[in-house]
Design a protein around this nucleic acid. Structure first.
Lengths: 352, 352
DNA sequence: ATGAAAGCGCTAACAC
DNA sequence: GTGTTAGCGCTTTCAT
């Protein structure tokens, strides 16, 4: 039992079973084994308490079965929910996962990629991507498969929702409710590329209704922060609300900030949805709570995870040299209690 | 650039720099190097595009710098928030993390541990633990450090909040508000051990006020489910609410279920906190939203993570043979809007 | 079906 | 300070 505290190796098993190393190896991997020796070896394995050393195996096979998952923030439900799904699928396929938080900083992203490369991961799933060209090049040069998830990236395999179409769904819903002055809100919590695509959707949806998007109805900030966290943001919001022709609704580029907005608006004395409507993006679990009840554009997380893993494993186990594979999924509008018809003029003017 | 697609090894660098393998190794590890050769080697590293192979290093050093994190459910904010903190601290200390979801199933837990052991992780952090004795024994036998986090476990290093004290805080708050009939609710989402400890806290707090805990005010179910998910659970809840002497308040063993309870109660036509008060446990971010505003017993997640990592690294890097280290942290009550004084009799009888 | 032998890419004594 | 050497524990030809 206590044998100097060296873990038993395949050689110990071989000796215990009276066979050679390679025979043990064969038995363990389930190839070429006569029933007789098979049981002998298995017994020996149990007797000495042998457990294969994956590190050694990985070295000699020159590949691991670990995939790296890079994400923005594990405390953000959108990422943790997605990470869970992706991890599940990976496990089912015999892969282990190692996780890294970038906190939205591209320096951190580089470090993490570097580390994953040293670990010789079989592939990488980027649930958030800074968009840095160099990172992608590095990975391509190393021949490590990558798929970018939930964020469109032409230069790489990727699977994402159709951002513009999603926003159009949301904006059109607001238009149908009768809103004409719809504000757009976004924070650095979503990647610049994604935000840009969503903003385009917003603009084109307005254009489709013969409306132009007014500069003073747009509020975007770059740091990954919430309204609550910065007083200047709240001031900007107030300026927006008290301008010449204030909005009657908001489209917000992700649920977390949408919820943050609702909190802030209510704190400022506005009622949602009676006075102001709010639409989010993502459909995180939180949005579905009765107390929150956020109307939002749902990303099909399950599909996202399924497609991402399928593409990644395809690259790892086979056709690395194939053309870029990109999947664009359809978003869906989930109507809940944060949207309603705009207040009538008389009701609106009743405000303090 | 394209060199038959074999990654450059330390030997390639050695040749390129005109030195031996070990000199390169020395430079990379930052030991014994004359400034002259140092730069020569570093140049060669850059020229050939060398990246150390961690797999090979791990094999020869007979240890990795990866720690395994086992948790119940990544989609549960309590775990994902904790996992983030723990991962952060680990990264700061040069460790990578690999994550595994047990989904609360102990079979899955065993599989994951087995896999981590094969990967030869340096240590394991169990953010949820089934309590299975055999798992712990196995790990001890392998000499792999483990610390159980947020769940008390005498047989192992662990750091957790004082569950009983936490519940007493919550129950005493309810008592002070004037509640006398306080129900206890818990689901399989929290480990049996933890639930037991919390239940004891509940009982002792009641006893401290000269109250006995009535059987018909207790609702516990074992599967990790929500009220919403099962109609029989809702029926049981209704039975509890319509009994001879119904509760005026609930203590719930975790926030997710507490929020679930509030949703269910409101759906059933009860107002929270006007008719029924609810106290949770954990203080996940969600609980702090104005729309949710859950009074709850906070676990100091930051402290939990800090202590857990400190103990684990202590074991990994040093004193494996020391006596069990256990840290019990003090919980804190966070009063919010889900608790209030019980309704007066006349108000109560006004119910439909 | 089984065994012998040659590494995988690196570190760590130990010589020089 | 630098080079030589002997493995780490396993897989994988290649003989037998």
């Amino acid at each position: 039992m206590t044998q100097g505290h060296r873990q038993p190796t395949i050689l110990d098993v071989a000796r215990a079973a009276g066979v050679s190393k390679s025979t043990v190896s064969n038995v363990i991997r389930g190839v070429a084994a006569s029933p007789a020796t098979r049981t002998r070896v298995l017994e020996a394995v149990a007797r000495v308490g042998y457990r294969p050393n994956a590190v050694a195996r990985n070295l000699v096979r020159r590949r691991t079965t670990t995939v790296g998952i890079l994400l923005g923030d594990l405390a953000n439900p959108f990422y943790s929910e997605l990470a869970k799904l992706v991890g599940q699928r990976l496990t089912e396929n015999g892969y282990a996962t190692t996780i890294g938080n970038t906190d939205g900083r591209s320096a951190r992203e580089r470090e993490l990629i570097e580390s994953l490369l040293e670990q010789r991961v079989a592939g990488i799933l980027m649930l958030q991507f800074s968009g840095e060209r160099s990172a992608l090049n590095e990975l391509r040069a190393q021949g490590v498969p990558v798929v970018v998830v939930s964020c469109w990236e032409e230069r790489s395999d990727c699977v994402a929702v159709d951002d513009a179409a999603g926003v159009e769904l949301g904006v059109r819903h607001l238009l149908e409710l009768g809103h004409r002055r719809i504000a757009y809100l976004s924070s650095g919590l979503v990647e610049p590329k994604t935000d840009q695509a969503r903003f385009e959707g917003y603009r084109s949806a307005l254009a489709g209704a013969g409306l132009v998007c007014a500069e003073n109805l747009i509020l975007r900030w770059e740091h990954p922060a919430y309204l609550r966290s910065g007083h200047d943001l709240i001031r900007e919001l107030q300026r927006l609300l008290c301008g010449a022709s204030p909005p009657t609704a908001f489209f917000v580029s992700n649920d977390l900030v949408a919820i943050d907005l609702i909190e802030t608006l209510e704190q400022l004395g506005f009622e949602v949805p009676e006075e102001l409507s709010v639409v989010g993006f993502d459909n995180i679990a939180l949005a579905g709570l009765a107390r929150v009840s956020l109307t939002t554009v749902a990303q099909p997380r399950d599909e996202l995870a399924r497609a991402a893993v399928e593409i990644l494993l395809g690259r790892i186990e086979g056709s690395v040299m194939h053309p870029v594979r990109q999947v664009r999924l359809a978003p869906e509008l989930v109507k809940r209690g944060s949207t309603a018809a705009p207040p009538t003029v008389s009701a609106a003017s009743r405000r303090p």
